[in-house]
């Protein structure tokens, strides 16, 4: 692996007696897309929050872009662009006001990103009219698109995108995937992607980490996970389902053995 954006060592988090993250050694290379996968409750959100410095690890350490977040959580503030799982925008403000707030919070002059914003709006079919409506009046897909723009426009070297295409129509999901690829391939950004949408993972992920009950059970290139968990079918979705430990034979029953 090349130079690392994130490196954790024996990262562990307990919530009282509940073990949420169990001694994980995460390695996210710079300039790549790393998909953090796992069934619900596997510890993905807890891991992400530890990277952001919002949760203090119970033990172990995590270094993000050279900063030991476990020791200096303040130093990482404002250094990571984030798209949370739920739209983290203000529903009473307009999309433009929300975007301006994020720009001002990150000390980014509007003029500096005006052209990029225009491109984002055009690509994601966000009209001027839409930008000046209250955020609450937007459709789910439009809200998600604006939230994505709010994360991408921060121009951070490291982006954490939690379910970026959730609730989007096929076209918008495709455009967002293209933008993510552009950000990584053309601008050299690093993306930590958490998603349950197989098409996102298949198209985007360079590396995968699979969390199960707080443990990182697999970490490696996308091809490696396929060889490890679905050597026969060579199907990425099968590999993930197998890695999660789900019963693929049930799916086979219902699909008439098509899988």
């Amino acid at each position: 692996m090349s130079e690392l954006m994130v490196e954790s060592k024996q990262l562990t988090k307990y919530f009282n007696s509940l073990l949420a993250v169990d001694k994980i050694d995460l390695k996210i290379p710079k300039g790549k897309i790393y998909a953090l996968l796992g069934p619900n409750g596997a510890g993905k959100t807890t891991t992400i929050r530890m990277l952001l410095g919002l949760l203090k690890p119970t033990s172990g350490e995590v270094i993000v872009n050279g900063v030991n977040v476990s020791v200096e959580p303040k130093s990482i503030r404002g250094e990571i662009g984030i798209l949370p799982q739920f739209s983290a925008a203000y529903y009473d403000l307009t999309p433009m006001q929300n975007i301006n707030f994020i720009l001002e919070l990150n000390n980014i002059p509007y003029d500096e990103v005006k052209a990029a914003l225009g491109e984002y709006f055009k690509t994601l079919d966000i009209s001027y009219e839409l930008l000046n409506k209250p955020f609450s009046k937007l459709s789910g897909g439009e809200q998600r698109s604006i939230s994505f723009i709010m994360a991408a426009i921060t121009n951070k070297e490291f982006l954490i995108l939690d379910e970026p295409t959730s609730g989007l129509d096929i076209a918008r999901a495709k455009y967002i995937r293209s933008i993510i690829k552009y950000l990584v391939e053309q601008q050299g950004k690093t993306v930590l992607l958490s998603s349950h949408i197989v098409s996102d993972l298949e198209e985007l992920a360079d590396y995968c980490g699979i969390l199960k009950k707080g443990k990182l059970i697999f970490q490696g290139r996308k091809e490696e996970i396929i060889n490890e968990y679905a050597p026969d079918s060579q199907d990425f979705e099968d590999a993930i389902v197998n890695a999660f430990g789900a019963k693929t034979n049930i799916a086979q029953t219902f699909m008439g053995g098509s899988k």
């Binding site: 929050r49 410095g53 919002l54 984030i82 739920f86 739209s87 925008a89 203000y90 994020i102």
Partner: peptide
């Protein structure tokens, strides 16, 4: 309630 704390805490120094 609006789930905006995560973003606020992440970006505010």
């Amino acid at each position: 309630r609006m789930r905006t704390m995560e973003v606020l805490l992440s970006y505010t120094k």
